[in-house]
Simulated scan of single mutants.
Amino acid sequence: MAAIDYIISEKSDVFMPSHGRNMGHAIQGHWLYAGHKKYITPTRRLMLPYFLNSSLPEAVFNNIIKELHGESLGQRELRAIKAGRDVTKYVQ
């Protein structure tokens, strides 16, 4: 199942990891190596109130999520010198 998930994620137009673990970092690293594609780094803490509010229309919800993630749409990040950071997530 993980292999199928990886293949589908790698072939997609946009990738949004559900958590910051190895799978998300591997896909981001693969995309950076193969050519820069968009991935969204979710801000789950800011999104939670909107997920809990079921009365929001879908169009309004979509606009809110786009605004929350306007700065996190896969821009390249400069690699900082920090021990323990995953090398597939940052670009030199």
Rank of each mutant, 00 (worst) to 15 (best):
I4A: 14
E58V: 09
L32Q: 10
I7M: 05
S55R: 08
E58N: 07
E77A: 07
W31D: 08
P49Q: 11
I81P: 10
L48V: 13
I81Y: 03
R44C: 05
Q92P: 15
F15S: 03
R76G: 02
L73G: 12
M1F: 09
R21E: 09
G84D: 13
E10C: 03
R79S: 13
E71G: 08
S54C: 01
R79N: 10
A83S: 15
M1I: 04
R79D: 13
P17V: 03
D13I: 03
E71F: 04
E10M: 02
H36M: 07
T43A: 11
G84E: 11
K89M: 10
M47F: 00
V91D: 13
Y6C: 02
R44P: 02
A83I: 11
S12R: 09
H30K: 10
G24L: 01
S72H: 06
N53W: 01
M23W: 10
A80C: 08
A83T: 14
R76I: 10
Q28K: 11
H25K: 13
K38F: 02
L73H: 05
I64M: 06
L56W: 02
N63K: 12
H19L: 07
S54T: 13
V60S: 12
Q28H: 07
Q92N: 14
G84L: 14
G70W: 03
P49M: 08
H19N: 15
V91S: 14
S18W: 09
E77G: 01
A80F: 00
R85V: 11
S72G: 00
P17Q: 12
S54Y: 03
N63F: 02
F51A: 10
H36L: 15
K66A: 14
A34E: 13
A3M: 15
K38C: 07
I27V: 15
L48N: 09
G20N: 12
K37E: 02
M16T: 13
H69K: 01
P57K: 08
Y50F: 15
H36G: 05
Y39G: 01
L73C: 06
G70E: 03
Y90Q: 04
N62A: 14
K82P: 00
G74F: 02
N63P: 00
Y90V: 05
E58I: 02
P49V: 06
R79V: 04
V60M: 04
G20Y: 14
I64C: 00
E67H: 01
A26I: 11
H36T: 12
V91W: 07
T88F: 15
M16A: 14
L78H: 01
I7E: 11
E71R: 06
K66G: 01
Y90P: 00
Q28E: 08
A26L: 13
A83P: 12
M47I: 11
R85A: 13
M23F: 14
L32I: 11
I40P: 04
V87R: 12
S9W: 04
L56K: 05
Y6N: 00
A3C: 05
D86E: 10
V87F: 09
G74N: 07
R21V: 05
K89T: 11
